[in-house]
Nucleic acid binder design. Structure first.
Lengths: 152, 152
DNA sequence: TATTGTTATACTCTATAACTATA
DNA sequence: TATAGTTATAGAGTATAACAATA
């Protein structure tokens, strides 16, 4: 059917637009949060994957090496991460999250979740069900590996 | 059931995390694009809602008034928007999108859509179907008005 | 010589404070 | 006096180039 083809053609455009608007809404939530998107992403990675060197982090986060050094320096100054020299290779600096870092991450997550909850609560039940049903698929989408490598 | 309650409790947290990761992926797509997220959002609004004053735009975009003046100045310098004095109230400056602005917006959209299409194509069909089914619901979510006002 | 990390420097984006012009 | 907009200035964030230390 023509309708199906049209829907398929615009599916990604529609998703792109919706994501952009959602992000904009969520960004406004972060009022007092002292944590940029990059900082939050780095902390989340350190919590998930454990301590790592600066270069490795730069690669994984899609940042430059000096940029990562600076981000790390900022977060260390604020007490959310720790740096210590590598035991084996003395060139590397192992970067790890601190207890304060974990606390901040948790608070940020609950703040965002609360904001989303408020939004979700205003939707009719069938919309909520559709979103709930699509969550695993969206998670898969976010984890498709192809792009990270294609960009450097 | 306990499983249902647990799923309901974490639905918004999961969605929040997924959105954050998706945005990160999409951000890396914008390689050569000469358009920040704020700039793209402003152009999209001008295209959608027509010419408006600087203060009104600042309010709607969640930016400060001087910040909006500067964003407008940048985009005007690059030829993507136009400014002209208000006819009735001579204090206001009507800001509108130009033909070049529309062209840029279209190109950015198609670029992002292509990137998303590549991602979607790597998912199994049932995941794609779930996302397709959730699109209207996600659009409703992005359009819930409650937050914009709650933040200023 | 290659790799890890840092320092120096510059650019974009955005904010607050102080100001001008019009209502 | 209140509102629309601008200018001045400062800070966060991130990049590239040049450098230092270790492998």
């Amino acid at each position: 059917m023509d309708r199906d083809r049209a829907a398929a053609r615009t599916e990604e455009a529609e998703l792109s637009a919706v994501l952009e608007r959602l992000v904009r809404v969520l960004r406004q939530v972060r009022g007092g949060e002292p944590l940029s998107a990059s900082a939050a992403s780095l902390l989340a990675r350190l919590e998930r994957d454990g301590p790592q060197g600066v270069s490795e982090l730069a690669r994984q986060e899609g940042a430059s090496q000096p940029g990562m050094t600076q981000l790390v320096a900022r977060l260390e100054r604020e007490g959310f991460i720790q740096r210590r020299g590598g035991a084996e290779d003395r060139r590397v600096v192992e970067v790890g999250i601190t207890a304060d870092g974990r606390k901040l991450l948790a608070s940020r997550r609950s703040q965002r979740a609360k904001a989303l909850r408020r939004l979700l609560d205003e939707l009719p039940e069938d919309d909520r069900a559709a979103i709930r049903a699509a969550l695993p698929a969206l998670a898969h989408l976010a984890d498709v590996p192809s792009l990270a490598s294609a960009n450097r």
